[in-house]
Simulated assay, not measured.
Amino acid sequence: MKFSRQTTLRSQATVTGVGVHSGAPVSLTVGPAPIEAGLVFVRTGLDGADREVRATAGSVIATEFATVLGDSEGPLVSTAEHVLAALRGMGVDNATIEIDGPEVPIMDGSAAPFVAAIEQAGVVSQSAARRFIQVLKPVQVAIGACSGELRPNATGFRIEVEIDFTNPVIGRQSYQFDLNPERFRREIARARTFGCMSDVAKLWSAGFALGSSFENTVVFDEERLLNPEGLRYADECARHKVLDALGDLALAGLPLLGTYRSVRGGHKLNHAVLTALLADRTAWRVVEGEPAVRRPRVATEVAVGGMVGGMIAPAYGPDVS
């Protein structure tokens, strides 16, 4: 697969749904953006002018139950991981994501509706070379029994996930994924958000997850899967963790060249590992061109240009898949 040029969307496409926490209706539109724009959320429906925020680690601010992107004036959009995973998974470098509410719609709990919107809009090449963040040395983070690592991989991006739940129905699962759009569409995009009924009930009682239902969440009790339609994949939970990791790591601001391994992880761990990588300037560099799979040439290093300057350390609430 060729990676030599940046890409954007040919036109706009819109999806509508509800926010997983508020239960309120929301509309999201993906559309074109210029070279080097990156992935940019445009929050509409506010009093006064629309507000923009780039999907980068420096735009992450803390809320109690979700990772939220915002600016100096406050929060703008939450639960962004699935649409970011869809854009990164389908190889889109530059896009606007217009949203008229505080949450990305949960849709069916997967990235598949966003992939359908991207395919409807169409992906087109731009004239500038694609840039990557290349991991130069291993970076590890441990949080209790959870651990994550980014290590070098000059030919592409790979995610290795291992989960181990005390819930016997979920149990221990693993999945390895080498990123390309066809594999993402086939293996990862349709994997849905999941949780245990006891946790969902606690969220409901606290006024969260008001938009969660069997239509957008795979739910287990201690003995069985509760969704009557069953699973989309036998290891759907592990695949969804791959999806979440891809969306969380899209906050690097550029595609990554490296391998990410997560053990018992989630959003909190994913962001912690990304933050640790970007904080260590000797652990990465920005390169441009095409990852060398068959050709032995080395990609050209280019200036960082302040892309991650001024990052703030994200704060984390409870991990929600």
Rank of each mutant, 00 (worst) to 15 (best):
G306C: 09
Y175P: 03
Q120I: 05
L231W: 12
E36A: 11
L256G: 07
V18W: 01
L69D: 03
P105M: 06
P228W: 04
W204V: 04
L249I: 07
A252N: 07
V40P: 00
T8R: 08
L243Y: 09
L274V: 05
A86M: 12
L243V: 02
V308F: 12
L9M: 05
A57I: 15
A24G: 08
G45Q: 08
F220L: 08
V218F: 06
R131N: 08
R10K: 15
E52D: 11
E98C: 09
L28K: 02
V218W: 02
A85D: 01
S110H: 05
S212N: 03
E223V: 06
D319P: 02
L274A: 02
S4H: 12
V293E: 09
S4C: 06
M107Y: 10
G171L: 11
I35W: 03
P296N: 07
P138E: 10
E215V: 03
R54I: 00
C237D: 09
S72F: 02
D244H: 06
A24C: 13
V123W: 05
S174M: 07
V298N: 08
P32K: 04
S127E: 15
A116P: 00
V68D: 09
A95G: 06
P181H: 07
A80C: 14
A313N: 12
L274T: 00
S59L: 06
N227I: 05
R232L: 09
A24M: 13
K202S: 13
K241Q: 09
E119P: 00
S78Q: 15
A272N: 10
E162R: 11
R285I: 06
P255C: 14
E81F: 03
M197L: 15
E149T: 15
A142N: 13
G207S: 08
T259V: 00
R239L: 02
P255W: 11
E162K: 09
N227V: 02
D221M: 03
T155S: 15
C196V: 15
F3T: 12
A206H: 13
I97N: 07
A117N: 06
Q12L: 04
D108I: 01
A121G: 05
R186H: 13
R10F: 14
V20P: 01
E290I: 04
R190L: 10
G266W: 09
A116F: 04
L84N: 02
E64Y: 13
V135W: 00
L225W: 10
A313F: 13
T275M: 05
G101S: 14
P255K: 14
L150Q: 10
A24V: 13
N227W: 12
G171E: 07
E52K: 01
S212G: 15
P314K: 05
M90T: 14
A85S: 14
V263Q: 11
K268Q: 13
I133G: 04
A238N: 03
M197Y: 14
D244S: 08
V92H: 08
G253P: 00
Q126R: 07
P102D: 14
